[in-house]
Design a protein around this nucleic acid. Sequence first.
DNA 1: TGTATTTTTGCAGTGACTGCAATAATGGTT
DNA 2: AACCATTATTGCAGTCACTGCAAAAATACA
Lengths: 208, 208
Amino acid sequence: MSQLLSLRDRKRAETWAALHLSASGTALDKGLECVTVDAVAADAGVSPRTFFNYFASKEDAVLGLQEPFVGESMLADFDVDGDLLASVSHLMHAVTRTIHGSADEDGNRCREVICRYPQLMHRRFQYIVKVEQLVTDAVAERLAQSSRWATAPAGYNVEDVAKMLVLVAGASLRFAIQKTTSHPTRESQSEALDQGMELMRNILKELL
Amino acid sequence: MSQLLSLRDRKRAETWAALHLSASGTALDKGLECVTVDAVAADAGVSPRTFFNYFASKEDAVLGLQEPFVGESMLADFDVDGDLLASVSHLMHAVTRTIHGSADEDGNRCREVICRYPQLMHRRFQYIVKVEQLVTDAVAERLAQSSRWATAPAGYNVEDVAKMLVLVAGASLRFAIQKTTSHPTRESQSEALDQGMELMRNILKELL
DNA sequence: TGTATTTTTGCAGTGACTGCAATAATGGTT
DNA sequence: AACCATTATTGCAGTCACTGCAAAAATACA
């Protein structure tokens, strides 16, 4: 188990976690203004300069953000011919989770920090923009292979359709995020996501 | 004409424009890394400290960003019982324009800067989040007075419906923004907005 | 053990941004 | 014109995020 990672990788993971834990903990305990790179680095037992080997900014450390990626497993139950909106929103949800390198227990802590310091949401949105780009590419690839969607409406291409799908599906994701961060309840975010999708359908059915 | 504004207000407007023009001009001519607060302030003939009386950050100066607001005139042709999605997206578009204090001719310059330095888009998104909040409140108020929308679907309230409407309408706005900034054509953004809305309708009709 | 690679670290520097208090400019009043 | 209240500008001193660079330490590998 501990041999799956080399000593180097294990230490890296430990330092990453120590920095993130110190940053988010200090933010909750003493306030975000007390979170300085120097203090966090000292708390984690590394030099301030090393901090930037792990995080591009102190906000990233507080939220434990990492570069998002589209994993193979996430695309497994992506069905172009099924409920496309649901597929896309679930894919976005899955990829969005990859920007949080921390464990699930840490999720509530982060949500609490974001709730107290909404400025941090902005930084998270930056990452979500990256998620949108990644998912758009992945969706476009799937659409291009589908007989139904390979040809887009006149004046548009497959990338446009993918982009629009991601933006619309992203609406329900953002709805779910705003709901769960302003009301830090126990209910899971994927529940909120499905509820948001349902509300969206209800409204749109009336409007189209 | 020049008496409509007091001397103080006129000078303020001039200094604002000088700072913004210097910042965006330097970004285009010499690159964004050459845009420093000191240089911009000197170029505009004010002290560096004064710069921060006008802009909260140097990015704001480059893009000429101002606090968004919902004007009376924007709500004039908002029709709750008509094409609600179109109404909301047009309202969002109108409010989004208020974050750009500069004149229309300056729009292309800013789009060019954003195109060359996509990091700036993030700062703009921060303002768009504010736009979303403002428009959500305005829309919720209108919905509450409407007989059709005053009662939301079970489990949701009017604010939820307004939020979702804004997010969905925002999707077509973001689509239009991405289109026009990656392809800085002459066609107006409101055209792109309507086209995006049309694409969204086409796609959603197939999916609902 | 020796060597190549990666990581950490210190250092010195740039530049954004802030609070504060003095000074100057402006608006309105007598 | 003279006077005062309000508001804007400025300099100063300081904090802190973030960077490039090169030396030193840790790790991997043969």
